[in-house]
Every structure is written in structure tokens, then in C-alpha cells.
């Protein structure tokens, strides 16, 4: 076989392989294999971790600058007006499948029992940054509101609209009640900068960055994610098929 032919054959085999991969990824069987693998990772990580904490760092290890990603300065709605007013009129609603729907002003969030933690933030793209976060544990808010039977997921509603869709995210109760899952209002001892989600954002420390909803306006307990957004549990999940379980 001449060199030319052999190269042609190799390129042809490569193209065939890649188009085969495309067909698998687009097929129902391919999708369910991906989802099964995701659940397997989730099950294995949770079984090994047993609800333990992620590492908390020393103050000297904090990154000099904490990068913002996704929305970094929302222009929609009245966000800019709220920011100009120092977020004094911001409300955080806790609702859905709860006994007592609640509504908190920023000041009330700051008066709840606080947790401060210096943790590493891992973005799905690959980078990491270390910051110190302060705020009440999500479990404190959920216990105050009282989950009703049937609540299985917690949905986070956000003020930012990115590319025409409202940002939202969701976690299951395992992550919602994890001790390091907090509603943060401060980064490195200062009120949250706008690029990092002012005035309130979630910290979901065992998952990737897109789970940590910023510009938080609502916390909603639901039985199923099917009717929320496009049904995949989050903005990036709906939009680009990112994994709902982002511990991998």
C-alpha cells in the first residue's frame, strides 16, 4: 500500500470513529449510559465521603483575587438599582414545599447563626480559587421553614438573566443539608463583590462552580425538577447539557 493510501485509510478510519462517537452520543442508549455513569460516580463519591467535610484552608492560602465567571454584572430587571441602593431592599424568599414560607432581608440573614469557611472553588473549566465565605447554613433556613413530606430537591432562583434565560440551580437534600452548604453574603470578610454574586450566593462545596447559584432571590423546595425551567435542574444543564451532579 502506498504511503498516500495508508494515510488516507487512517484519516478515513479516524473520521469513521468520530462520527460513530457522535451517533452514540446522540442516541437514547448513549444518553442513558452517560446518565448511569453520572449516578455511579455520585453514589460512589457519597458512599466514600459519608457526608464528611471538604478541606478548609488557612487565611494565608486565600487566592489574591477571586475570579468571577458566567454573569459578572447583571443588567436585567432592577438589579443595578438594587446594587446602587446597597441591596437594602433585597429579599430572599424560602418557599415551595415548606410548612412556613419565609422572606428574609439581608440584615436578617446576617443576624442568623453564621458559618465562616475558607474553601476551594473548582470551576468546570478546570481552574480553582480559594476564598473565605460567611453566611448561615442552608439547613438553618430550611429548618426554620420546615420541609413538607415529598420535598426532594432544593431549587435556587437567581436575579441574573444570562443569554435570555433566568439562572437557576438545584441540589438534592444530601447537599442541601451538608454542613458546609451556606448562603454566603461575604467573601474574605467583605460584602460579596458583584462579580461573585452580590448580595447572596450559594456555596455547594462538593460540586463544581456552576452549582453555586449567585444573585440569590429564592430557595424553593420541590418534589421533582421536571417542571422547573426545561426540566434538567439548572441553567447550564438545560442550556448545554452539563451534568446535574457536578461532583466529578
Amino acid at each position: 500500500m502506498s504511503g498516500m493510501n495508508r494515510r488516507g485509510l487512517l484519516a478515513g478510519a479516524g473520521a469513521l470513529f468520530l462520527s460513530g462517537c457522535g451517533k452514540v452520543a446522540d442516541s437514547a442508549a448513549g444518553r442513558s449510559a452517560f446518565e448511569a455513569a453520572q449516578r455511579l460516580h455520585q453514589g460512589a463519591q457519597r458512599a466514600l465521603g459519608g457526608g464528611g467535610l471538604v478541606k478548609e484552608y488557612a487565611p494565608s492560602e486565600i487566592s489574591p483575587y477571586f475570579r468571577g465567571n458566567g454573569s459578572v454584572d447583571p443588567q436585567n430587571g432592577d438589579y443595578q438599582a438594587q446594587a446602587a441602593a446597597g441591596f437594602t431592599n433585597w429579599r430572599l424568599q424560602v418557599g415551595g414545599l415548606v410548612e412556613r414560607p419565609l422572606s428574609f432581608a439581608l440584615e436578617e440573614i446576617r443576624r442568623l447563626p453564621q458559618r465562616t469557611q475558607i474553601t476551594r472553588h473548582d470551576c468546570v473549566e478546570g481552574w480553582s480559587a480559594i476564598g473565605q465565605w460567611t453566611g448561615p447554613q442552608l439547613s438553618v433556613l430550611l429548618e426554620a421553614a420546615g420541609l413538607r413530606d415529598g420535598a426532594r430537591f432544593i431549587v435556587f432562583r437567581c436575579a441574573d438573566n444570562l443569554n435570555g434565560q433566568d439562572y437557576y440551580e438545584s441540589v438534592d437534600l444530601d447537599d442541601a443539608f451538608h454542613p458546609q452548604t451556606i448562603v454566603a453574603h461575604a467573601l474574605n470578610g467583605e460584602p460579596l463583590p458583584i462579580r461573585n454574586g452580590a448580595p447572596l450566593r450559594m456555596r455547594i462545596e462538593r460540586q463544581l462552580g456552576y452549582k453555586h447559584a449567585k444573585y440569590l432571590t429564592g430557595i424553593e423546595a420541590v418534589a421533582s425538577l421536571d417542571t422547573i425551567g426545561e426540566g434538567k435542574g439548572g441553567y447550564w444543564e438545560d442550556r448545554s447539557d452539563y451534568q446535574w451532579y457536578a461532583g466529578i
Binding site: S19, C21, G22, F34, A37, Q38, E125, D241, Q243
Partner: peptide, 23 residues
């Protein structure tokens, strides 16, 4: 692109393949 799966930039789908075949 010809060296990657899928053969266009798609982080979500690449992670699907990677997470599946890790097992």
C-alpha cells in the same frame, strides 16, 4: 477538533464521555 471527542468543542459532552469511560 479532529483530535477531540466530540469532534467540536463541547465541554459537557466531552465530560460525559470521560466520566463514562473512566469506569
Amino acid at each position: 477538533a479532529w483530535a477531540t471527542i466530540p469532534d467540536f468543542y463541547d465541554l459537557a459532552q466531552a465530560r460525559d464521555w470521560h466520566n463514562l469511560f473512566a469506569w
